[in-house]
Each structure stands twice: as structure tokens, then as C-alpha cells.
């Protein structure tokens, strides 16, 4: 990582940290105004993260510099911020910012920490398929993270309503109905994107390595993740099931996302066929 990229990543972290602090102050009631400032900080963090990719792309002469663990973490943070700030613009509230800003900060911190790890060697000729696979997979994960965030907020608001002793959570969070919508809408997009990522991934692995790779940990866990999310969506939309239990199940599915994305790196690497 060149010094400019490292600086951009560090300053982006600073802005995300500031976003988190501002949201904390707002949420605790210590300040009444400041949400616009917090949102501006998050946008600046996102902008710096974007510049980081430009410098990395120029440095490596590639369109999508995500071949190392560090770059993958930074790209996930970028995708999440993009989905939140650009695609799901209507859900921008202080409550979402409160949960998302530490997640963004954590992934950029991981990106800084993991910069010493080596990058994969990828076949140059198949870059277009790889780009579609990566972008759809990361955007799917970002959508699932938004859905998960709404799920956390749903359970917080539900607990507050059950406790009957309203505090800041009760006043600041949207209604259960709105939060429920924000769980399932991004989930649909996430599931579709994940299916695209899986399909293109199989195709790419066949072209690049001559075989469909079904049995590496990341592929298996991704298929389990997709199955879980499809089950949740079936329960909600087809079986009309509502309420806490389905939300909890969606959070279990997100646990699988984390395992696919982070956990499999501690088994036999990410996609083990990349190392063969």
C-alpha cells in the first residue's frame, strides 16, 4: 500500500470515528442538533475511501483493486457506505448511523491492520467476470448489513416497547413497521446479488481453473447463507410470517454472512482454489 493510500484510509477512519461520536452524542440526548454534521462526516469518510481505491487502482493498474485481504476489507466498507449513502438514501437516520459508523470504522481498521498480508494471483484475462462476481458479492453483503442493522434496531425498539419505560431508544428509533420494511427490502436485493455472485463465481472458476469449485469453505458457507436468506424471505413474503422470530432468523443468516466473509479466512483461506 502506498503512503497516500494509507493516509487516505487513516483519515477516512478518523471521519467515521467522528461520525460515531456525533451519533452517540445525539442518541444519548447530550446534543439535540448535529445529525447533518454526522452525515457530512460519513460522506467525507466515504469520499476518502473512494479516493483510496483510485490511488490503489492507479498504483496497481487494475480496475478493481481487491486482491488482498486489506483491499477486500476496505472495499466492503466502501460498498456498505455506498449502499447506505447512495442506494438507500431514504433510510438515513441517526439510528442507522449509530450502528453503521462503527462497522465502517472496524472494517477500515481491519484493512489498515491487514495490509501486510499478501495478495492473490488472479488470471488477468478473466478480470471482467471477476469484477462482476466481487462487486455483486460485496454489494450483497452490504445489503445484508443494512438489513441486519434494521434488525438490531427492531429488536431494540421491540424491547423498549415491552419494557414500557421509554428511554432514548424509544424516542429516537423509527416504528417497528418501518424497521421491518428496512429489514426485508435490502434483503431482497442482497439475496438477488448474492445469487448473481454465486452464478458468476462458478462460471469464472470453471473458466479460470477448469472446474466448478463447490467444496471450498467459502463457497459452501455462501450457499448456506443464500439458502438461509431465501428461507427468511419465503417466511415473510410467502408465508406472511411477521415479528420477532423471523427477525432473529434473519440475524442468524447474517451470522453466516460474517462467517463466509471473515470466518472462512481462518479455515483454509478464502476460496482455497485460489491458493492451489
Amino acid at each position: 500500500m502506498n503512503p497516500l493510500s494509507l493516509s487516505l484510509l487513516s483519515i477516512a477512519q478518523l471521519f467515521y470515528a467522528l461520525t460515531f461520536v456525533l451519533h452517540l452524542l445525539l442518541f444519548s440526548g447530550k446534543v439535540v442538533r448535529g445529525y447533518r454534521g454526522a452525515l457530512a462526516c460519513m460522506r467525507l469518510g466515504f469520499l476518502l475511501n473512494t479516493f483510496y481505491f483510485f490511488t490503489e487502482a492507479v498504483g496497481q493498474g487494475t480496475l478493481l483493486p481487491v486482491a488482498s485481504v486489506s483491499q477486500a476489507m476496505a472495499f466492503f466498507a466502501w460498498s456498505l457506505a455506498f449502499v447506505y449513502l447512495v442506494l438507500f438514501i431514504r433510510i438515513q437516520t441517526e439510528s442507522f448511523g449509530l450502528i453503521l459508523s462503527p462497522i465502517l470504522l472496524a472494517f477500515l481498521a481491519l484493512a489498515s491492520w491487514a495490509r501486510a498480508f499478501s495478495a492473490y494471483e488472479l488470471p488477468e484475462s478473466l478480470n471482467a467476470y471477476f469484477t462482476v462476481h466481487i462487486v455483486s458479492a460485496f454489494f450483497a453483503y452490504a445489503c445484508f448489513t443494512i438489513s441486519f442493522t434494521a434488525g438490531v434496531l427492531y429488536l431494540m425498539q421491540q424491547r423498549e416497547l415491552k419494557r414500557k419505560n421509554p428511554g432514548q431508544v424509544y424516542y429516537r428509533l423509527p416504528s417497528l413497521e418501518e424497521l421491518e420494511g428496512l429489514i426485508y427490502q435490502p434483503m431482497i436485493w442482497g439475496a438477488l446479488l448474492l445469487l448473481v455472485a454465486v452464478g458468476v463465481g462458478f462460471f469464472w472458476s470453471k473458466l479460470a481453473y477448469g472446474e466448478f469449485s463447490f467444496l471450498d469453505p467459502k463457497t459452501v458457507s455462501t450457499l448456506v447463507t443464500a439458502a438461509l436468506y431465501l428461507a427468511v424471505l419465503f417466511l415473510h413474503y410467502v408465508s406472511s410470517q411477521r415479528g420477532k422470530k423471523v427477525v432473529v432468523l434473519s440475524m442468524v443468516a447474517f451470522g453466516m454472512v460474517l462467517f463466509s466473509f471473515l470466518g472462512t479466512r481462518f479455515l483454509e483461506g478464502s476460496h482455497n482454489f485460489l491458493h492451489s
Binding site: L161, P166, Y171, S175, L176, E177
Partner: peptide, 18 residues
């Protein structure tokens, strides 16, 4: 925040159903 009992009921309903 609502203060009278009927308006508290409305506020709570809106926190549940939007």
C-alpha cells in the same frame, strides 16, 4: 412525546404500526 392517555395510546400505536 404525548402526555394525555388517549394521545399516549396513539403515540404507542404509531411506534408499533408506523
Amino acid at each position: 412525546g404525548a402526555v394525555s392517555i388517549p394521545s399516549v395510546a396513539v403515540e404507542l400505536a404509531e411506534k408499533i404500526f408506523g
